[in-house]
Design a protein around this nucleic acid. Sequence first.
DNA 1: TCCTGTGAAATCTTTCACAGCT
DNA 2: AGCTGTGAAAGATTTCACAGGA
Lengths: 189, 189
Amino acid sequence: MYLRALSFMPEQDSEYVSSKDIADLLHIHSPQVRKDLSYFGAFGTRGTGYKISDLRKHVRKALKLDVVQKAVLVGVGKLGTALTSYPGFKMYGFDIAAAYDASEKRIGKKIGSVIIEDVAKLENIKNEDIKLAILAVPAENAQNIADILVACGIKGILNLAPCYLKVPKRVKVITIDIAVELSVLPYYT
Amino acid sequence: MYLRALSFMPEQDSEYVSSKDIADLLHIHSPQVRKDLSYFGAFGTRGTGYKISDLRKHVRKALKLDVVQKAVLVGVGKLGTALTSYPGFKMYGFDIAAAYDASEKRIGKKIGSVIIEDVAKLENIKNEDIKLAILAVPAENAQNIADILVACGIKGILNLAPCYLKVPKRVKVITIDIAVELSVLPYYT
DNA sequence: TCCTGTGAAATCTTTCACAGCT
DNA sequence: AGCTGTGAAAGATTTCACAGGA
């Protein structure tokens, strides 16, 4: 969140931001910003604020986004395709280094800079240095694919299927279910 | 979350679930489930658990999902298109009742059961009983569209653009930025 | 015996308020 | 004067533990 806020603050305007500047942009309070950033270490300047370029570097490093993170995309349907053309990925240092799908229509086609491979050969990712996976397959197949990914040494899964995945504790799963997010809106109307 | 958990529990198996059943499925603790559900009122049976059909009805009602919620989709690009074919929406009682886009290529085409209209005519939604909007447009246009939606009386916005929206307090915005979610994964690797 | 509902305790998070540096 | 960094206070959430109904 802070990284994205920083992306809206070109250094041309000013070299420094205050916690209040960031807070206003994110609609949160400034002590929150200072507390959060202080967990990464103290690198602001009293009286002046945070140097934008330094802050960006520190946050990227804390999140391990300072090196390019390779990710495999499994499921190149409409959602999967939409994701690859999403500019945000590159901004945060992600690289979709491989793509797999079950549909013959899609296998062999190019998406971004990679060729879509047969999901039956998903185990090939073992040979590449890929630690993250984006799972955009139907809910019915998600657990099955997740098991293979885990066996291949994947450490983190972004799950876009509306289901819960059983994985070992060492693997981090983040599930985004758009309908669940949408579900809370009527409550506020 | 609880609603989705219930969708995995067909009543054929057993008429009742315990808070522990639900907790295990969602990877949370059972007192959490009981506390949460108790805010909606007490409708479990001691010694037996919660009657699945009753629980579903109560949760749907509490979230105002017991009536069909009409939503307008703005931006029918890859992501917008992917969303309309997402089965989760119907499951939670959402109905995409209108769709708008800026591209001539897309205007006039059908998506789901509606015809894509010109976003310049977005104000037409005033005449329909639509309270929710799904915003799947580029970040540059998101605020502009949000302003129009607010002026049209929209009460809740699901924002899929990677940016922050300024809206009056009475309007609820939920932003999903997939790259932000993905960003936390490397931290755990 | 099994499981809910709920006060009380424990824990976690946010906000305050101010010392101290620039 | 302006803004960070941080203990302490306030607030919110989660977990415990158990009374009590089925």
